[in-house]
Design a binder for these strands. Structure first.
Lengths: 98, 98
DNA sequence: GACATATTTAGATGATTAGCTAATTATCAC
DNA sequence: GTGATAATTAGCTAATCATCTAAATATGTC
């Protein structure tokens, strides 16, 4: 969960996730709209993968990235719900990592 | 919105927000549970303030911090909803900052 | 095998970040 | 005003981060 928020802290990575809304895209296709080098984009993909927000699948010369919407939703909605004080399980404290 | 995600990327800051769930707390009270120096916590508060996630109010010698739940919700739910493609207003693209 | 294409790894750099201690500012109580 | 308490600012450091170019690793085509 820490990794999810860390991954989401970069605008480029958030935009990559948005691009994946409509369906899987290759690393190249995902990189095209951005004005940064391929290696830089590759590093962004690695962060998203590490956070389990995307799944990478090799297809010939390409690598196809799939959005893992459920992971994104669980992290964000889970966090938001922890503030609702009523819709939430009596889980008084979590997130003591660092 | 970029600032919100940036602010949320740190576990300490997320925990500060959690502490503020039940009501306003002073800088000192917010710092107590953490094993870092007061100045460091003060810097965290500044980031949260900058993201508009908290409101600071001076009260005598103390500074009382209030959670701005609406800002948090709008940012996170807004982002999540942009993936739902159906529950969402036709706002095709946003977040082009950086 | 030689070449082209797609992506990642290696290695370096400048900027940002979280952390600290020491000093400063603000407020309250005598 | 002195002294105590609460919080922030100043100044520094080590670690992390986003970025780059060049090189390496597939994979497919001829």
């Amino acid at each position: 969960m820490n990794k999810v928020f860390r991954a989401l802290s970069d605008p480029t990575r958030r935009q990559v996730l948005q691009l994946l809304r409509k369906g899987p895209l290759s690393a190249g296709e995902l990189s095209d709209p951005f004005d940064v080098s391929k290696p830089t984009m590759s590093a962004h993909f690695a962060v998203l993968k590490e956070a389990d927000l995307v799944h990478a699948e090799k297809d010939g010369k390409s690598v196809i990235y799939h959005l893992k919407l459920s992971v994104l939703e669980e992290a964000l909605l889970g966090f938001i719900h922890s503030f609702d004080l009523g819709t939430e399980t009596p889980k008084p404290n979590e997130e003591t990592e660092r």
